[in-house]
Each structure stands twice: as C-alpha cells, then as structure tokens.
Design a protein around this nucleic acid. Structure first.
Lengths: 143, 143
DNA sequence: TATTGTTATACTCTATAACTATA
DNA sequence: TATAGTTATAGAGTATAACAATA
C-alpha cells in the first residue's frame, strides 16, 4: 500500500497537520531516556526565543490552557531545565526562565530535530526548504 | 502581549505544528452542531481521494492505531457518512466507502476549511499560498 | 473585586493487549 | 498459525471549574 498523502482538494491545513504529526512522532521515537518530548521542546524554545516570560504569556502564544502548562513546567523544572521566579513587580506572576542546563538540552534536541526534518523534507532541495521555512515563518509571525 | 511565533532557529516542524494546531482549533470552533470534526474530515477526505479502502490501509496512511479508527468509523457510520462492507475476496476485511451524504458533508466542510485557511494565511498572497501548498504536497507525497 | 497560577476533575485522543472471525 | 477488525483498558493531552495568593 502507498501510504503517502495526496489530494485534499488544494487545502493546506491537512497537509501541514500530517507533516507535523509525522515529524513529532519521529522526533519522540528517536528520543533516548532523558530526552525531552516535543511539547517540552516547544516550551523551552519559546522561553529561549523571547527570554523570561510570565506563564500567562506562554499560554497565550500556545493557545494552551493554564492548567496544562502547570504540569509541563513542573516536568521541566524538576529536571532543572527551567525555573520559575516571582515577578517582584507583581507577586502573582511567575516568570519562567531557561537554565543553562535547559539551553544545553535544547541544543541537543535541535540536533535530533534537524535529522528528523532532513528525512521528512527529503523531497525538497535546499532552496525549496528555505522557501517553505520562510513562508511558514511569515504565516506564523502574522498571527 | 504579542502572541505570534518567531524564532525556532530555522526549524520547519514547530511552525507547521503551530499552524496545524491553530487551524484545527479554528475549524472545530467554527463548527455548528452536526458538523464533522477535523479528525472525521481527515478520514472522509482520504476515502474520497482514494476510493473505497480497507481499514488497515487507512490506519497505515494516518499512522493511527486500528483501535482508534474503529471509533472514528463508528461515528461516521452512525451519521450515514461512510459505510463498511465486507471484502468478498477476504471476509476479514472491511472496505470503507463514502456515502452520498458523506460527500455532501465533505463539500460543506471544505467551505468552512477554506474560510479558516483564508484567515490563517492572510499574510501570504495568492501565488505564495500556491507555492506553500505545492511544497507541502510534494513533501507529503514523498512519504 | 479582579487577576495569576494551582488543583481537581472530566473529556478527548492515542496505544497496548486480549479477543473474534476469518484465512 | 496468522491476519483484520473489535473490545477493554490505561495513559497522554486538553478544557472547565473552584480555589489560594496577590493586586
């Protein structure tokens, strides 16, 4: 059986969805014990890209419920990859920050991710991959 | 707070993932009572694109466990959108087929999907959307 | 009173194992 | 014995509601 996806009557979203699903599956299956999951990767990356940020802001970016985020951050904090500190200006807020260990783990995970993407995108040449990346970046930056 | 996604150190997968997540959320939230969910949409589309196919083949394309698929197909069949019939050549197999009602519902859902995508991809012009679509089609067709 | 984060809880999605009916 | 599909069940992932601390 040919398991590739075609069709979808010219719709972008189902294709992006299958791509993401296949990619995360491959990434999580390539994980060794101790490696972070793809959900943890997303949180770590956001905190690195933006710097320390309140939990509510992370929630807003991901469109994730606050209650989910608590568990995710607990996992990361237990492993010493992030820390929460109170915002001195508003002691209700927890500011989430990447630790040096978190940064190391993030780099290692990006290496795994690059291998997964290289396999996933093998049908495209280097320039086409750049085009795809830039289009997605523009789409997501506009939201 | 700016909730847009940037960064990710040049990685395509997290961007595709956020796009898919945001899109499916928008689609499912635009649903009226009686509309299909995005998971049901994926099954209906596959069966339309490929014609009648065994459950095992659907499972292989989606990378979904057989046991999940049973429930999905039960939902669709209860609503008269698909039917299962025994393969006369191998009575263990169920061949899944789209019904005329299923085809009608699929068209209506595509209209909703188009609106969601139009909003989601507003940063891109018509040609750029075509390029994005074609790149994703080639990536997914190669797997 | 309102807001940030947490806990408790339920619902959806997914995977594993045991079962059935056919081969 | 092996395979296609099903059922039972448990584990992720997600959302809602009620709560504590702080504003």
């Amino acid at each position: 059986m040919n398991t590739s996806i075609t069709g979808y009557a010219g719709h972008t979203l189902p294709l992006a969805s299958h791509l993401a699903r296949a990619g995360w599956r491959a990434l999580d299956q390539s994980a060794q014990p101790g490696d972070v999951t793809h959900r943890q990767l997303l949180v770590l990356t956001l905190v690195r890209d933006r710097g320390p940020m309140a939990q509510q802001d992370i929630r807003d970016v991901f469109g994730l419920d606050s209650s989910n985020l608590v568990g995710l951050l607990n996992e990361l904090e237990e492993r010493g990859l992030t820390v929460r500190r109170r915002d001195p200006n508003d002691r209700r807020r927890h500011i989430v920050e990447l630790t040096p260990d978190g940064s190391v783990v993030l780099d290692a995970t990006y290496a795994r991710l690059a291998a997964v993407e290289d396999d996933l995108l093998h049908a495209l040449g280097a320039e086409e991959r750049q085009v795809l990346l830039q289009l997605l970046q523009r789409v997501m930056a506009s939201r």
